[in-house]
Amino acid sequence: MLALDIVLERGARNGGGFRRHVSIRDDARVIALAGRSGAGKTSVLHAIAGLLTPCEGRIEVDGRCLFDSVAGIDVPVHARHVGYMFQDARLFPHLDVRGNLGYGRRGQGAATFGFDDVVALLGIGALLERRTTHLSGGEAQRVALGRALLSQPRILLLDEPLTNLDQARREELIPYLQRVRDETALPIVYVSHSADEVERLTRAVHTLD
């Protein structure tokens, strides 16, 4: 189950003068972050992943402290074991699908998610030899999700992964997101502006003001 405890303040020294206090506690394994643009949803994900350093506060995921300004704890990005799926797939154009998936396994220890299992889970076996430029938006996002899983994460962060897809591609991808939710034990934090997506993929919702 997910135990997420975040107190985040982002001050001017982190860029742009943006300042936000976010406090979330939830024992649900899958939660959604909702709210208007600029409310700090992506900043919360970046703080969990270690891509943004809070001015102060504490970040705890599944009983493991990742950041504590008082105790002087700031776990490096590579040691946080976070799988991050962005709005755009961010695949490597010089690699085919197999190469992109394999990149996620570099430098990792024992595998929780095996290559063949992830390929089967996401239905991307027929895509392995394709260049990324020959993928549809939905296919590219499935590959990006596979790469995130193959990084052997302890938590999965999904930052509006359907935003750049048309309705048909969204409907194509949602069942695969549901499979990841239902067939893995990963804690998941899902950011979306879409109430329909949130309802179909999560049960616990936190709205940032």
Rank of each mutant, 00 (worst) to 15 (best):
A3W: 04
L4Y: 08
L4V: 15
L8Y: 10
R10M: 05
R10S: 12
G17R: 06
R20P: 01
R20M: 15
H21G: 15
V22E: 06
V22Y: 04
A28W: 04
V30M: 06
I31R: 04
L33G: 10
A34Y: 12
G35F: 06
G35T: 06
R36G: 10
R36S: 14
G40F: 06
S43D: 03
G50D: 02
G50R: 04
G50A: 10
L51N: 03
L51W: 02
L52F: 02
T53R: 11
P54W: 04
E56N: 09
G57V: 08
R58K: 13
V61E: 02
L66Q: 02
A71L: 13
I73G: 11
I73N: 09
P76V: 11
V77T: 15
R80M: 07
R80Q: 08
M85V: 14
R90A: 08
R90Y: 03
L91S: 02
F92M: 07
H94C: 05
D96N: 12
D96E: 08
R98S: 10
G99E: 02
N100A: 08
G102V: 01
Y103T: 00
R106L: 07
F113E: 00
F113R: 05
F115W: 03
D117R: 13
L121V: 01
I124G: 00
G125N: 01
A126P: 13
A126H: 08
A126C: 08
L127T: 02
L127G: 00
L128K: 01
L128F: 02
R130T: 03
T132R: 11
H134F: 04
H134T: 13
G138H: 06
E139N: 07
Q141S: 13
L145I: 02
R147S: 01
L149S: 00
L150G: 00
Q152V: 12
L156S: 13
L156P: 06
D159V: 12
D159S: 10
E160D: 15
P161V: 10
P161W: 09
L162P: 10
N164S: 15
L165Q: 05
A168M: 08
A168E: 07
E172V: 14
E172K: 05
L173N: 10
L177C: 09
R179A: 15
R179V: 10
A185M: 12
P187E: 04
V189T: 05
H193L: 05
S194M: 12
A195M: 09
E197L: 06
L201K: 10
H206A: 08
D209H: 13
